[in-house]
Structures are given as C-alpha cells and as structure tokens.
Nucleic acid binder design. Structure first.
Length: 111
DNA sequence: CAGGCTATCCGTCACGCACG
DNA sequence: CGTGCGTGACGGATAGCCTG
C-alpha cells in the first residue's frame, strides 16, 4: 500500500521524470535503457527525431494511464468476484441447513 | 538497528485484436 | 495494412514486518 503517488502529479504537470526520456529505438531490456540517462547525450538530436520523441512521449503517457485504468478495472473485478464468493458461500450454508432440517422432519415422520 | 523478505504499486515493453 | 488500445509480463521502488 502506502504509495506516494507523486509520479502521478509530475505526469499531470507535464514534468516528465528523467528516466522516462529514452532513445526511440525500443527493444532493449529496460534495465539497459534506464542506464542511458540524458546526461550521457553529448550533441542535440537532429530535428526530425524531436517529432519522434514527442510521439513516443505521448504514447508513453497514454499507455501509463491505460495501465492505471486497466489495474483499477482488474481490482474492481476481483472485488466483485470476492463478493460473489461470499454470497454463494452464504447461500450454500443456508441450503445445507435447510436440507438438514428437512431430513430431520422426514426421519421423524418415517418413525 | 541493520538487513532480508514480502506485498503492493508503478511505468514500460511486447503482443494481439479491432477498426478504419 | 497501419494504428491505437487493452492487457500480461517484467523489473524497479517503497513500505511494513520479522529476526538476529
């Protein structure tokens, strides 16, 4: 639990953490990519790569939010399933008791 | 108290699917 | 067929708990 949620704020303000600004050629293990910090970049990128970078940033931002939403929905779904389990367990318990009572009645009649 | 372990959250990547 | 979206998988960060 106990998560600050500060990255949400920074995303909302457009203040993108440095580690998220990576080279556009994906496919590498992301631990390697994490190591490639902007500080290592010596010369400014050619102008056309700026558009690519922007596109990538937009994509990352959208995906970030999509992942958040996806997790929220999944949590909700799991909660629903847990509720359903609880209800069915109660129903089952009730039915077992009812069956037991009916069996008792039937047995006493048979005597 | 330091260090290990575990649970949880998050961002990113990769992939499959639906749509235009 | 290209594009965008949803989601599983992965690894990093952080907090809380336990133990020596």
């Amino acid at each position: 639990m106990a998560v600050t949620g500060d990255e949400t704020e920074s995303a909302a303000t457009g203040d993108i953490p440095a580690y998220q600004l990576r080279s556009p050629n994906s496919g590498l293990a992301h631990s390697i990519m994490m190591a490639a910090s902007p500080g290592n970049m010596q010369s400014p990128p050619p102008p056309h790569t700026e558009a690519i970078t922007l596109k990538r940033e937009v994509r990352l931002m959208k995906n970030r939010e999509a992942a958040r939403e996806c997790r929220r929905k999944k949590k909700e779904y799991v909660k629903c399933l847990e509720n359903r389990v609880a209800v069915l367990e109660n129903q089952n318990k009730t039915l077992i008791e009812e069956l037991k009572a009916l069996k008792d009645i039937y047995c006493h009649k048979a005597e």
